[in-house]
Every structure is written in C-alpha cells, then in structure tokens.
Design a protein around this nucleic acid. Structure first.
Length: 595
RNA sequence: GCCAACAUAGCUCAGCUGGUAGAGCAGGCGUUUCGUAAACGUCAGGUCAGGAGUUCGAAUCUCCUUGUUGGCUCCA
C-alpha cells in the first residue's frame, strides 16, 4: 500500500506526543539494555513503535518494566532539544549504533530518506536530545517530556520486524505502544480495541457456528458450516441476480489447466511464487488455477467475434488456490483456497472508458448493498515484474484514473501495486480492528489479449484486438464474508440472516401451533426455526439473542387463541402481539429493504 | 517463511515450584410446562495438539513436528 502521508496528523500535537513517547521508550530500553542497538521509531496511527536489536527476546514483564521507566523519565520534565550537524559529526555521536550510521549514510548521499525511500534532495541531518538519550531525528517533538501524560501511554506488544522491512536483513524487536493526550482517551482507545475483539470474525465465526478451519484438512482452507453456507448462498443469489440484470453471462471453468496455458498467460513467469507445484497427469503437467482469466479467454476465443457482440462480460464464482506463506494466513480474510466473484470484460478499445465507468459504478452499487459506505479507492500502477510496454501502462493508468475522477472518488496511488498484466483500481474497506482489506479490484489488461491473440471483427471488417478488464467486486467470498461478519458484528440484517425468526413456544402445548405458523412462514420464503426444547421461554430467548436472530416470535396461550405472534426483536424491543400476516409483511418489508 | 507467545472436554477456562486431570456452559436422560436474556436433578465427555527425551514418576522440564495468535514481509 502507498505510504500514507496525512499532513494534518503529522503536524498535530498528538503526533508530536507519540513521536516523543517513542524516544522516551528508546531511552528506557537503553537504560535496561545499555548494549542495545536502536533502529527507527516513528509515530503511527493510534500510537508509535521503536525497533531494537537486543541481546535477548523481550517478555511481557520487560514491557511493564520499560513502561515504568518511561513514566520516571517523563516526570523528569526533560526538554527535547534539536541540533543540526554534519554527517561526520553525526557519525561520531552514533559510532556504536550501526543502524543509525546506515541511516546517516543514506541521508548523506541524498539517495534515501529516513524511511528508506528514494529521494532527490539532500535532507539536513539533525538530532534530538532528551535526558540521557540522543536520536537521529527530523522531529518535531514536544518541548519537554512532561508534555507526555504518563497515564495516557501504554506499551501494547512486542513483535519481530525486519530492518528496513527487508526479509534478508536482521530481524529486530519492535515494541508497539499507544499514547494519547488524556488518560480518558487511552481508556477509550483500549475499550475500542476490546470492542473490536468482540467483533472479530474468527471469534464470531465459532460462536455463531459459521465456519471452521481444521488442522487435518489444512491451513487456510475453509469449511463452511450450514449457517455460514446459508449466508454465502444468499450473497451468491443476490450477486447472480444483479449480474444477470447488468448484462453478464455466467460460465463455469475447471480447477486445473495445462502448464502450457499458464506459460502462455504469463502466470508461470510472473505469478509462479503464488502457484502450487504441478500435478502430473499421464506425463503432462497441470497446475491448480490461481486465477480464472485464461479459461475465460478461451471461452471468448472459441468463436469468431464481431464488434456487434461487444462488450462480452463473462462472470464466474471461480475457486482458485494460491500459495500464501503460513505466517500470513488469517481467519477468512487471508486463505489459500478461495472463490472469487470474478468476471472478464472484452470490449472495443473505443468503449474502454465507458466500460471502466460501468464496472466502477456496478462495484460501488454492490458494496453499498451490503452496507459498506466507508471504503477507500486506490489506483495501483506498474510493478517491477510486469509485462507490456510502459507506454501502454501509462495510457491504461490514465484511463483508470480518469474514471475515478469522473466519479468524484477520492483515491490514493499505490505505486507499483498493479498486477503483472495491468494497472488496477481497488476498493478497500475497514474491518472491525481498523485493518483495511482489499475487496473490489478492477484490473486493466492489455496483455492476455495479446498473448492469447484474441480478436474481433470491427466495423471495417478488420481483425482488431479487444481490451480486457478483470474484476472481482466482492473480492473473494471468504474475505468478503469475514469482513461482513465484522461489519455487522455477527448480527446480519434480516435479508442475510441464516435464521430470520426463532419461534418460541412457551409450553409444549404451543408447539403444534408454532410448527403450523412456521410452515406457513416458510411458504412465504422466511427462514424460521421452532425452538421445541423443554426449556423455559427466558432461556430460549437468551439463546436466540446470542445467535443474533433478528426476530423472536413468542407463542403462548394468548397468541394461540387469537392466531397471533408476539414479536421481540434482537435489540430487545418488544413489539407485542400481532397477526401472523402482519409479522410476515413486516419481515418481508425489512428483507426487501435489506435493513 | 521470519521473530515471539500460546495449544488442557464441543466451547470458555482452573490445574503453584513434576506425584498420572477439574469447573461452568453445551450434550444425553429424567422431572418441570413456565410470558420477554440462564428451571432442577442426574449421567456421560480428555492418549492434557502429535512425537521423542530427562525422571522412580511429565499436563507441568528439554527438543522436534503440527497448528493458532500478535507483528514483519507478501496479498483477493
């Protein structure tokens, strides 16, 4: 992802507090480990971190000790003072700090800035001192340590981090901390983290019995349980209806394809590290598909195409398998086998802008249907490993950018983040923990048409190469489901809830009536379940509540006599008794409105 | 993959410095038939992730493997 530079945040007092807290933490760590080496320690969203090379691994006890030392340093009211100096002077000061020396050399040569990014100008070299600690730093900082509220900081965790983010370089220990202006802000933040944990799709997935991952089956491979599968089916149905109306044709393609196919497509050359080892079938190598595109291309190529048929939009819920390193797997959001809501558009070059607009709009419509209004757009440009000439890359990037501008969508540029075959627009949404996940992706491709030599006959009877767009709107059903669970906190809106209404008979004599209205409601396409256990009503309500079922229908003597149901919603609202038909129309109305 | 931590019943977790497992919920059975977030009783459940080692003795100590978590790197 592109480096985010939020200048408003960077010039705020809070940013200075966090950055200063990082320096104080470094001082505290060096007090404890005088032989420790310091790397870098910036302020980040919600806090700060600092990387160290230390003689041993840190424990949670070390963290609280470091935190205590920090509080002592803060109370010393030490001023932060800045000095600008030459590279040589700086090297003397940091003689026993190899990481700092490397940073100074980067600044000196003017080739790298302090984040290790290439830069044109030679930045000035400055240091900041507070108490016994001195750090190579551009600043800014608070005036003195007392500006940091000792009761509004907390060290959160330790983790490994490569020096300069390069896995070939040493692994350092990174301490993450958070700092706020007031203790109450810290409390609020910690409460927010706690709330986020409650919405975690891995926790809810287990509690609501939606899916599981089994060690024997394999890492990153999802088992969809009946309730999760129900939600998936509802998503797929909605998706199919929308696509059908939007002019897509559905296709199905195999899970494996010959090596030659992936050779032609360029995947073996450019996407190899994400592909699994080939399978030998009668001496011929086949690969499990990491993408669906080559198959769709062959469906296009199967017949002679006229400009009159374009655009052709081929859609498929295509299941793909990609190698992901074990350490990156994460619940439903990062897996090894997943189903993309994939489609490929083939269009006349002159219709490309309109076609991009169409997909952008369709994509937004789809995300909004699931209640996502907060997403960020990214424009990803040419990566280092890519095919196609730079001229065309540039033109394609401009075409995508123009569409974003036409739709007034704020976007960021993700430099070098494109696919190997073309630039792309991505939409990301935030999950409960504030992590953003890429869902929609709209990718321009001028390479596969070339590589597979696909054509259409244009208005002048000439063979012409179509342009191609790859797109996945929900991204993958697995990731989408994970993000959706967190988005709704497991309380799916009625149209997506696996069980929409739990019918709760108060006593056994009400069960027959409960079953009767249940089957009537099923005819009205409502998903209902009768809780016929011999438990008390209170306990049935409690269970339905925990399952986050939208409607609870209480059936007792009164309801049975009057042919009614008593409706309780999962938010605790008691709507009292109403005729069954009234409930059905209320529920269907909410289902239609997707609320 | 890398750094670190963790893995005890279906779930959530106890089990101190080694003396061969325990609770609540869920489940089975029985009693109860109840008006808006937990009725009562009873029974059953575990090769303590897997393997090897140290020891008279390992859930507990050591090593390896598998998996999970938090990050790094990478991505739908």
């Amino acid at each position: 992802m592109a480096a985010k530079h939020n200048s408003e945040y960077e010039s705020s007092e809070l940013y200075r507090i966090r950055h200063s807290a990082a320096h104080v933490m470094a001082e505290a760590v060096l007090e404890k480990f005088p032989e420790g080496k310091v790397a870098i320690g910036p302020a980040i969203a919600d806090g700060f971190y600092y990387d160290f090379d230390l003689p041993r691994a840190l424990t949670p006890e070390d963290l609280s000790e470091i935190e205590d030392r920090m509080k002592k340093i803060i109370k010393g009211k030490h001023p932060f003072t800045k000095e600008v100096l030459s590279a040589d002077e700086a090297k003397k000061i940091f003689a026993d700090q190899p990481f700092k020396i490397e940073l100074i050399e980067g600044l000196e040569s003017g080739s790298l800035d302090e984040d290790g990014n290439p830069t044109d100008e030679k930045p000035e070299i400055s240091i900041y001192r507070q108490d016994k600690f001195v750090d190579l730093c551009r600043g800014p900082h608070v005036e003195n340590t007392s500006k940091i509220n000792p009761n509004a900081i907390k060290l959160l965790n330790v983790s490994g981090a490569y020096w300069r983010g390069d896995e070939k370089r040493p692994m350092l220990q990174r301490i993450y901390g958070t700092a706020w202006e007031k203790p109450q802000d810290l409390k609020d933040y910690l409460w927010k983290l706690e709330e986020a944990r409650k919405r975690d799709h891995r926790k809810l997935g287990k509690e609501l019995d939606l899916y599981s991952i089994n060690e024997e089956v394999g890492q990153g491979l999802i088992l969809w349980h009946p309730k999760g599968a129900k939600v998936r089916k509802l998503i797929e149905n909605f998706w199919s209806d929308e696509h059908e109306q939007a002019g897509y044709d559905f296709v199905y393609t195999p899970h494996i394809g010959k090596a030659q196919l992936w050779e032609t497509s360029g995947h073996l050359g450019f996407y190899n590290e994400n592909m699994y080892a080939p399978i030998d079938i009668e001496g011929i190598k086949y690969y499990i598909k990491p993408m669906n595109c080559p198959f769709h291309v062959y469906i296009y190529k199967n017949s002679l195409r006229s400009y009159r048929e374009l655009p052709i939009r081929l859609a498929e819920m295509g299941t793909v398998y990609r190698f992901e390193r074990s350490g990156v797997l994460h619940g439903l959001t990062r897996v090894r086998g997943f189903t993309q809501d994939d489609a490929h558009h083939f269009c006349h070059p002159k219709h490309m802008p309109a076609e991009i607009d169409f997909v952008v709009e369709f994509s937004l419509k789809m995300l909004r249907a699931f209640g996502f209004d907060n997403f960020q757009a990214y424009l990803s440009t040419k990566p280092e490993k890519s095919v196609g000439d730079p001229e065309r890359w540039k033109a394609a990037e401009e075409a995508l950018e123009a569409s974003l501008q036409r739709h007034n969508l704020p976007y960021e540029i993700d430099k070098g983040g494109g696919a190997f075959y073309g630039p792309k627009i991505d939409f990301k949404v935030n999950d409960a923990i504030g992590k953003d996940w890429q869902l929609s992706t709209i990718q321009f491709d001028f390479n596969l048409p070339e590589r597979f030599d696909i054509n259409f006959i244009d208005e002048n009877g000439q063979e012409t190469r179509p342009y191609m767009i790859h797109r996945a709107l929900l991204g993958s059903l697995e990731r989408f489901f994970g993000v959706l669970i967190e988005h709704y906190g497991g309380a799916f809106p009625a149209w997506l809830a696996p069980v929409q209404a739990e019918i709760i008979p108060i006593a056994d004599r009400h069960i027959d009536y409960a079953n009767e209205i249940a089957s009537a409601m099923r005819k009205d396409k409502l998903r209902v379940h009768v809780d016929a256990r011999s438990d008390r009503m209170n306990s049935k309500i409690r269970d339905a509540q925990r399952e986050k079922i939208p409607y609870m229908l209480i059936i007792g003597d009164k309801e049975m006599e009057s042919g009614q149901v008593s409706l309780r919603k999962r938010n605790g609202e008691d709507l009292g008794s109403m005729p069954v038909a009234e409930f059905v129309s209320l529920a269907k109305d909410e289902v239609d409105k997707k609320i």
